[in-house]
Design a protein around this nucleic acid. Structure first.
Lengths: 345, 345
DNA sequence: TTGAAAGCGCTAACAG
DNA sequence: CTGTTAGCGCTTTCAA
């Protein structure tokens, strides 16, 4: 490496081979426990590896074989829902040689492209993309280049596996809960979406669709009221401000994500309104904070942990067998009723 | 790559050279804008790069030069304070060739070692370690192997730069605030620490020290009351339960971190106590959620964003000049008074 | 200013 | 079962 004195040269496979009195091929084979090594050879090599403290260079490996590196692209470290997914992913990786690296802060097509390219440039063995906004053609190309699992995008592509929550059904569950409590003016805050493709594939769009559909089937079509902001706390805050300014404000606000619901609660607190006395609030995701007593948010659990374990299982499968047909997993959400929803006044 | 058909072979430097009618050496030089290239050559090469959509293989580069990859090790994605640091780091990287990858979930010496080794194996050009718990010798070795900046550890090592909040002073500020409100029985919840080295270097230990020192200097030595749990929401919850069970409970709880304070609020809500009416609560970090109105947590701002920008500046410096003496930056914290603290009953 | 050639550490044919 | 050998894609002396 350019920055270190020659004296601390890294131990290489050649050093190990010399120390063990065998060929580098032998060392390589033992390391990858490939076919054709005697147990005697294995023990000699392993001993040399331990004595010398040898560690294979992922860079050199990358030129021929795999890097044992997996990449996760997440849109936003601040959304704690993604931590649940990561937990699930990491769990399955314990005890394997794989190392997971993640990137954050991809909010647009350009930065997403930069990140996916960066991961491919670094010869990662597999990618997990969470709620990507890229165009299908780009995702398809990524999937053709490297084994890829896409989470949070209802895509019908064939080049990669997908894992999704049934967002349409989940939104329906929440509307049913609120309507069951007697609410009629149930408003929804969604993440603004204009791109026609994403309008059909992104979870936020499907939740809005599910809301619309459920309102109609509960005979509340005339009360459909959707505010488009963003899936952030700020988005929730501003969305709530807009809804409170309506001539006849809603009696319940169904936010498309828990972080959005937090922003709603922020605005309601500021306005001096009580929850659920004056107005009911619900979210989506069931982040850990939703169970936090001072908040106790009613929400929809999409099982982030299970999404993570499913995704990593699919990814490892696909690395083993890149040719197998794309899987399309859709997991069922469950409503979680806590303290922010109640009957209307 | 083993998983893709030969037909989609990656464009290499050889392809670019052939297409531009020059040598691979020339291409390499232009790419790294090294010394000794005519402007004519530069434009020809750049044109070929664009036409072919060439992207250098980081893996191949790693064997000779740099990878343009930086690694950030964070202990816990769930602690939103780290997001502030990451924002600061990412900001300075915009427009550079560097790509940042992070790992999470290193809670012990073993997994930290695994992660740092993994980053070194992958020939990363620089590392930022956040609140590492490893032994100094290990950190020193990492720092000698690759340019490293350590955040959140008051170490006096010479092999890497450090960026820290003045945790001792920060804790003093909070005690002063609470004492100024008239509190005497001010308890503290800390992250359990037994290792003698970490007891001198970790922020949590210094905050506890600062608390102790400040209590004494305010003449409240007899009321010093420290509960050792962990810097998580759970830790705060259990710490508060312990404190509430005291024969004479404290009138104020100073949690060593905001996430801990959230756990405290959780426990107080459960116990039916009002904040700050019955008891005052404060945290440390000033995470975004602290400003969330329904919580409005009094805390200490350690300026995560500035910590991040400082760290990345130092890291890029050190990559450029690995020989320069280690910097030791300590940033001043500021108290942020919100709604969870008030005069005692 | 340019290019030929060696080699970074590893894996994978292919002989032995 | 074992070792020799030829690269992977790039950077870097060193001549021209």
């Amino acid at each position: 490496m350019h920055h270190q004195p020659a004296t601390v040269r890294r131990v290489t496979i050649v050093d190990v081979a010399r120390h063990a009195g065998v060929s580098t091929t032998a060392v390589s084979k033992v390391l990858r426990n490939a076919y054709g090594t005697s147990s005697q050879m294995r023990s000699r090599v392993n001993a040399a590896v331990d004595e010398l403290g040898y560690r294979p260079s992922a860079a050199a490996r990358a030129l021929r074989g795999r890097t044992w590196t997996l990449g996760v692209m997440l849109p936003d470290v601040r959304n704690p829902f993604f931590a649940d997914i990561l937990d699930g992913v990491a769990e399955h990786l314990d005890g394997t040689e794989y190392q997971l690296f993640m990137t954050s802060g991809c909010d647009d097509v350009t930065s997403e492209a930069r990140v996916t390219e960066a991961m491919i440039d670094r010869s990662m063995d597999g990618l997990i993309l969470i709620a990507p906004v890229s165009r299908p053609a780009h995702l398809e190309r990524v999937g053709r280049t490297v084994p890829t699992v896409v989470i949070g995008r209802h895509s019908r592509s064939t080049g990669f596996d997908t894992v999704n929550d049934d967002d349409f059904a989940g939104a329906g569950l929440m509307v049913a809960h609120l309507a069951g409590l007697g609410h009629r003016r149930i408003a929804h805050i969604e993440h603004r979406e204009t791109d026609p493709v994403r309008l059909a594939e992104m979870p936020n769009a499907l939740r809005a669709d599910g809301y619309r559909h459920a309102m109609l089937s509960h005979g509340l079509g005339e009360h459909i009221d959707i505010v488009s902001t963003g899936y952030t706390r700020d988005g929730g805050y501003h969305g709530a401000r807009i809804l409170l300014d309506r001539p006849v404000p809603p009696t319940a606000i169904f936010a498309g994500a828990d972080v959005v619901a937090l922003g709603v609660l922020d605005a309601l607190t500021e306005a001096g309104l009580s929850v659920p006395g004056d107005i009911s609030v619900s979210g989506y995701d069931d982040i850990t904070l939703a169970g936090f007593r001072p908040i106790s948010l009613t929400t929809v659990d999409q099982g982030g942990h299970r999404i993570g374990t499913t995704a990593i299982r699919l990814l490892l499968d696909r690395i083993t067998d890149p040719g197998r047909p794309a899987a399309r997993v859709k997991l069922a959400p469950t409503p979680v009723v806590r303290a922010t929803t109640g009957p209307p006044r």
